[in-house]
Amino acid sequence: MPSRSGGDRSRSASAGPAGPAPGSLARVRVRFAKLGKVRWTSHRDVARMWERALRRAGLPVAYSGGFSPHPLLSFGLALPTGCESTAEYLDIALDPARAGLGTSKRPAPRATTTHDEPHGAHEQPWSYAPSEQSHVEEWTGQVAEAFAGTSSPLFPDGIEVIGAAALAPGAPSLQQAVVACTWEVDVLAGDPEVDVAEHVAQVMSASSLPVRRERKGRQVEDDLRPSLLAMAVDAGEAPGPPVLRVETATRPRGVRPSELADVLALRLGRAVRTHQWIEIDGGRAEPIVAGPPRAATPGGGAL
């Protein structure tokens, strides 16, 4: 692949403009979907879509310092290329000091256009800076709410923002917090004699499920069994293939739908990640509440 000039970040701390002071940043957590043709893009492609969408929206995203500044976005678990999801998350760091910049000089929308315009940035909460430090949290909540309501036109078809909420200071990152996922996976119609439930029962009763995988050019063997928390067949009344509902852990490792097909010895089709879970007070919850966004409590609020 062509190397972009932005790739050289290793020495960026030594030179160039300083980044924002730590502690001055606010964070917004976003839930989004990845459905349809766009599922063939990679995790890295999606990250780049976000960087561009946030610039188009004029959101005051915080940047790292140095000669290779990059927006401070942190994504959670990578979604394998080809899988769909209604539960992808990322955390966006906002720099309140950047709020209000750039909106006055943004050009007026053209009369003719082939794609949706960024919604009038001058009307958004991020077009004015919070007046005092104590207002930052409230402002962040407003930014999250407004962004969730206007952002989907900024993305390619299939990427859809479902919700956004301000994140309390000190809340753990997605990488730290997410402990499990729920998947829905179609079983492709095959031999009608194959008893899908029987395959599932065998896998769930196994004491170990070795899978081989290439990691850094070496073949390694992992046990998939500890990561399979639950699995059920949802034959349903509706016509169509049976659907597996699978709960997977993120540690010690995650589970790819392709690995699932291997251990089940079944041909699997469309795979959709429907939930990610974090632990809170001994129970579990989604990283933010989907639906109409509101300011979340630390750790994402009650389910």
Partner: peptide, 19 residues
């Protein structure tokens, strides 16, 4: 065919600005 090939997103279109 896309699950069998490298960089499948090259074949899906959907670019911003696409007509």
């Amino acid at each position: 065919l896309l699950a069998q090939v490298v960089k499948p997103a090259r074949y899906i279109g959907g670019e911003l600005g696409a007509q």
